[in-house]
Amino acid sequence: METTGIKGLGALVISFIIYLIDVVNEAIVVLVFFMLLDVITGLMRSWVTKSWDSTIGFSGIVKKIGVFIMIGMAAAIEYMVMAAGQDPKGLMLLGVTSFFIVNEGLSILENCAQIGLPIPAVLFNALAKMHRDPAGKELRLARHPMLDRIDKKELLKENEALQHQLLKQKEEEKKNEN
């Protein structure tokens, strides 16, 4: 209960500071919405492609937290400029946030393409080019083809059969010892 109180107090203080420096604007709301859509389409993609990987999912969450840290840095610099008597008119914060909105939009588009939704050829080709380094090497992780052939239910049945067989062997060993 004490931890919850500390977290609640921290959230209250941070919310008040954000209110005072007027950091929350429409662009950040759009960014949060796009991040939510990216997570949802990413989960859908992993389900459709049968490539569920918690490590990739966790690293995506860490990156999204890093995005907010960078936006916080831009807001702090903008606040510093305002304190010096200049009016940046929110352009720095808007620029950083807009960059990440575009980034999330591309990620949503990639997820939708991998799910199998029809993507215009121009966008599909652009996405394909983005995933190659200048030497033409593919940067995206490819799923091993053997994983497509593995049926999870069959694997579980085989595992149960092996466990049953091991139990029988142990029982026979005990009988032979006596």
Rank of each mutant, 00 (worst) to 15 (best):
L37D: 06
V30T: 10
Y79E: 00
F34S: 13
M44G: 14
Y19F: 13
V30Y: 13
V67C: 01
F34R: 08
E78L: 02
M70P: 10
M80D: 14
I65N: 01
M73A: 07
A11E: 14
L31A: 05
D22E: 15
F33N: 10
I71R: 02
V81A: 05
S59N: 15
S15G: 14
A11S: 06
V62A: 10
S59W: 12
I61S: 05
V48G: 03
I17M: 02
M35I: 09
Y79A: 15
G57W: 06
M73F: 06
A27D: 11
S46H: 01
S51F: 05
L31Q: 03
I18F: 11
I14P: 01
F34L: 15
D22R: 15
L12P: 01
A74F: 03
V62F: 02
M35S: 12
I77Y: 08
W47P: 10
G66R: 00
V81H: 07
L31K: 04
F68S: 12
L31I: 09
V62L: 11
I14C: 15
V48R: 08
A74R: 00
I18K: 04
V81C: 12
D53R: 15
W52E: 12
I77S: 06
V30D: 09
I69S: 07
V67Y: 02
G57A: 12
V81W: 01
T41A: 06
I56R: 14
M73V: 08
I69W: 03
K50I: 08
M73G: 07
I28T: 10
V67T: 08
V24I: 07
V39I: 13
M80P: 08
R45H: 10
I21Y: 03
I17D: 03
M44N: 08
V39H: 14
A27F: 07
G42Q: 04
S15R: 09
Y19S: 08
A27N: 12
T55S: 11
G60P: 05
A27W: 14
W47G: 08
V39W: 10
L43A: 04
I40L: 13
D22F: 08
W47I: 12
G42S: 01
I77E: 00
D53V: 12
V30L: 15
V32G: 04
V24A: 10
D22C: 12
L43D: 06
G72A: 05
I65F: 05
I14W: 09
L20M: 06
G42E: 01
L36I: 11
A74V: 02
W47Q: 15
Y79V: 02
F34V: 05
T49P: 01
S59D: 08
G57N: 09
F33G: 13
M73C: 03
W52R: 15
A11H: 05
A75F: 11
D38T: 11
I28H: 00
S15C: 15
G72C: 00
D38S: 08
S15E: 02
L36W: 13
M44K: 09
M35P: 02
T55F: 14
I65L: 04
M73Y: 11
M80K: 13
I61Q: 05
I69M: 00
S59I: 15
V24C: 12
F34Y: 09
M35L: 12
I18V: 07
A76Q: 04
L12H: 00
A27Q: 13
D53E: 06
